[in-house]
Simulated assay, not measured.
Amino acid sequence: MVQLPDRFTLPEGLIPSTTPDPPAIPRDAATVMLVRGPGEPEVFLQRRVDAMPFAGGMTVFPGGGVDPRDADTSVAWTGHEPAWWAERLGCGEDLARALVCAAVRETFEESGVLLAGPDSETLVADTAPYAQARHALVSREFSLAGFLAENGLVLRADLLRPWANWVTPIEEPRRYDTRFFVAALPDGQRADDVTSEAVEAYWSTPRTALRDWDEGRCGLLPPTWVTLTELSRCSTVAEILATERTMGKVVPKIVRNEDAARLLLPTDPGYEEAQ
């Protein structure tokens, strides 16, 4: 696993001063790294609204919590079946189905990119006709299953690849058990900034995003920094999509000293001993 640099400290006020007792139970969530080429891959990023209760002001990938309706078995689906995803994601089939559906739904809600099409061979090329349905999904007036059925679309699970599994440290009152996915931007579609959860959205190479963080132009959470570093080691979108990943849960631990709070990852010295 990529190690965080020693200078990676957590922003003042981001980590609570006390740990909830008992710790909050993590909520299942999905996030998607949208990538595009040709040439050096770019990834789609959003800077969250400062007032957001979780990761306010941070630069992140699109994503969010699983909705109970994401587990609807009536969702039209093509690609690897839930059993395949369950093995990769380290969970039961019902949760695996819900995570994949949440990944597709959240990507559409937050970026306007829709990983679906009329059949297993084609994709939606223009999502503009679904703008109203997108708003209805955000407000939970519409379920993903209902949206796909009404428009004669099938979810393209074959376009997603599993990448990582991060769990929020126990100090946080809001915790997430988040599966990270990666997907290429479909031909003809564009990612936008039409979301109330972000103040800006843009494409960047992973190297540029990491440099922006290093020079203080953006804030990154540890999972985002690590993932961008991993993506930066791939020279093409095809290489990213072909990367085989192991999806063990990464549960960072927070350590504090007189100057700042830092995160220890499972491969860091002192992780096992940290309280």
Rank of each mutant, 00 (worst) to 15 (best):
E171V: 08
P118V: 13
R245M: 03
T227W: 04
V49A: 10
V226P: 02
C91W: 05
A103K: 04
A164Y: 04
S143P: 08
E81W: 04
A136M: 07
P23L: 02
D212T: 03
G65I: 03
P269W: 05
P41Q: 02
V32M: 10
Y130E: 08
E93Q: 12
F54A: 10
S17K: 13
D28R: 15
A71S: 15
L159Q: 14
V226S: 06
A125T: 12
A102R: 06
R262D: 10
T208M: 10
E272N: 05
M52G: 02
A238D: 14
S120C: 00
A274N: 13
M247T: 02
G248P: 07
D193W: 02
L160H: 03
A131Q: 06
T122L: 10
M33E: 14
A24D: 13
H80R: 10
W163S: 04
F142N: 12
R156F: 07
A55N: 14
L45A: 01
R156W: 07
P186M: 04
D158K: 05
N151M: 05
A136V: 00
V167W: 05
R69E: 04
P266H: 09
D50T: 15
V251P: 00
A83F: 08
A29H: 01
E215Q: 15
V167G: 06
T246K: 08
L160Q: 02
G92Y: 05
E121N: 05
A131D: 07
T59M: 08
R105L: 08
R262C: 13
T31S: 15
G37I: 09
D67T: 00
L265H: 11
D192A: 09
L99K: 14
M247E: 09
P82R: 11
R161I: 11
P186W: 06
R140A: 07
V138W: 11
A55D: 10
A184R: 15
T78P: 00
L155V: 14
R245V: 09
G90C: 04
R105C: 08
V250K: 01
G188S: 11
M33V: 15
R179H: 15
S139A: 15
